[in-house]
Nucleic acid binder design. Structure first.
Lengths: 213, 213, 213, 213
DNA sequence: CGATAACCGAGACGGTACGTCGAGTCTTGGC
DNA sequence: GCCAAGACTCGACGTACCGTCTCGGTTATCG
């Protein structure tokens, strides 16, 4: 990822006009799929070029720039679109649901299509606030809200202590997955017990069982 | 950050020859300092160019490429070199030492010089294993070992449960700092109570104090 | 003049495509004129850089490389384009026409724009046959054919002996001009009688008038 | 051939110092031979680099620059040194001697070692007067003087007309060889009758035998 | 139904940076 | 003061992309 840096750019999803020939739905799809195909064929997100994408998609460069203001916006959009849909967590104890959530993160991280990874944008998030804003609004905040809701239920049901910052809790939970995605991209994510271990460790704490016991 | 991607590159610190005019120590320093100076003056890590660095350092491009195989290697090297030195954690309870460690991470993340941030490399770590290897060996693994040692003391002293994967524990601890650096680079890191909160949350667990007790 | 030597390069005049935005006629002209302007301002052909030309022309380097495969091809093309147009030699005796032709060569050699001189390519002609081929086809052969035609008329009209290799004759005639361009570039070319002297010397021979006379 | 052009450089043969260790004769020879060897192995004069020469000669670059002020000076020096020694023209008619001289030129042009050809310097002669001066003094002028002497004998003996500029005559004679070296480097030089043809053509003139006869 | 506005693929445009190479100079240790 | 080796600065090479701008041609919708 680079762009010439000046960190301006207004990141936005494709914006529609009103008159004349309408934009080709097919072209848009071809572009996104071309990115995915290139990713599959070994190109890293950062090593992607708009020219390459256009060629792979059989599309003119202008057709891309008509839809996204720049390369980063396109790539981030692909990232957002390929975010796995988080399942509805309906029944069960809060503990079990937390494990389910962690499993979702683990599988997301494993997913072949997860390759367009947030990692590629971490640096841009700092430099291009719009980029971060978009990802935050579309992915991070909804996820965080959902988690907060769940934990609130846990608090109400007595499964979770009431004096805890729920957002911080989310960050702690996500920590290991994030660490393995960002800092140790070759780390092992295959162990299906990982999620349960994390949740239980956090629930029980790491200090030996207290007092009277 | 980009490079032409092919993810080959042999990342290594400048390797010295033995015959002929020796490499100029001054030049090397000038280069690293030029990077830092550019960072200060607003250039983002990703927006840095070798040509700009050479100019700022008053050095020929070849002098840079003689020492590092490409831009990324140089930038990573600067990142490694500017990593704050982790203090010796000598006395006190394990809990207090953990808080100190977290404070170190928080301050690192805040530090002006932290701007050459890991975030810029997260994507490269996936694509260029040598890059990751170097960072892992020089920064991550030492840090992890230190943490493991400390937690082992905690286990021995009865402050930490014995049945926990210490590396995983490290990942959990670091989680919030990582999350705020990578995913929420504009997040608040100023609260000095944050470290204690995280450590204590983890020590006590988030489930209400357990029964019979 | 140098290039990295390997003497491959396919020298050709700018070749047009058929689809997409057509090549800018203006850019092409700007490039050639920039070369000429630089020549005027003192830069020697050999000391010319593509970067300098691009800058002077207000054009991207790629725009140059899109049209010519390398620096030498561009420079040769400029040389060919600035070759003075040989006048039509219509009336008069063959002797007078030969003098006219020699005058043309003399004036070409003198011409300000003659500065992009063949001399700069003499070495390349040996190493890069395509370069020579192009110059031969576009400049040398037409000139030689014209000369051959004229001399043939001379033979028919009894002004020139019939047993002479007309191409060799051409080489002999051109000799002094070539010598002064290549070996004695500071030699005197101002004497307007030079051409007549050469032609008459050659017509009459250098041996004293023969026999009966 | 290029150099950064500024056409200054003081061209001179290796100039000796006075104190300390004397210059290695062997090194000098190794350098010249390295150039010749590179020429043999296909490198063109223009495509030669000082670094390559130094490597081929097993010599430091400084050792070269201690002897010649720059690349062109070295190359010209090699050119001058490899100039074939012109034979003594002792007996026979002036016509026969002229043919011998032309043969010498033809063989020089053919000679394997003639590859370090004047052609490579034609452009530099214009831009770097010192370069031309040296070649002129060491090669061209002696040759011209010898020719002038011979022709003077011819005039005295009645073989050559008295009213002719002898230097111009030399240029006319050399013309075809020069043309074939410079403009038609792939031209045929194998015909041993060529020299006689040129000389006789010039002696007799190209106009039909004159009147009264 | 014909005009017209916005689309489309292709590819050229001015730029910036890449990583490499070479020129001519400087600096080691060693003879 | 020489030597080989190889550093140094500088500047150009030819390539690759960026984001923009034309081309000629196509396709919906409006008048």
């Amino acid at each position: 990822m680079n762009s010439t840096d000046p960190a301006q750019a207004t990141i936005q999803a494709p914006c529609a006009p009103r008159r004349g020939r309408p934009r080709s739905e097919a072209a848009e799809q071809a572009i996104v799929e071309a990115v995915l195909r290139l990713l599959d064929s070994g190109t890293s997100l950062g090593g992607m070029s708009v020219e390459g994408i256009a060629a792979e998609a059989g599309v003119g460069k202008a057709t891309i720039y008509r839809r996204w203001p720049n390369k980063d916006a396109l790539l981030l959009d692909v990232l957002v679109r390929t975010e796995l849909a988080e399942p509805e967590y309906v029944g069960g104890s809060v503990r079990d649901t937390l494990v389910e959530i962690m499993e979702f993160f683990r599988e997301s991280a494993l997913a072949r299509r997860e390759r367009p990874s947030v990692a590629a944008f971490a640096d841009q998030f700092r430099a291009v606030p719009e980029l971060h804003k978009r990802y935050h609004e579309q992915v991070l905040e909804p996820r965080r809200a959902r988690l907060r809701g769940l934990l609130a239920i846990g608090v109400a049901g007595g499964e979770v202590r009431a004096d805890i910052d729920l957002d911080l809790l989310g960050e702690i939970l996500v920590g290991p997955m994030l660490s393995r995605t960002m800092l140790h991209p070759h780390a092992d994510l295959d162990d299906p017990k990982l999620s349960a271990t994390i949740v239980d460790t956090l629930l029980q704490g790491i200090a030996p069982v207290r007092s009277g016991t």
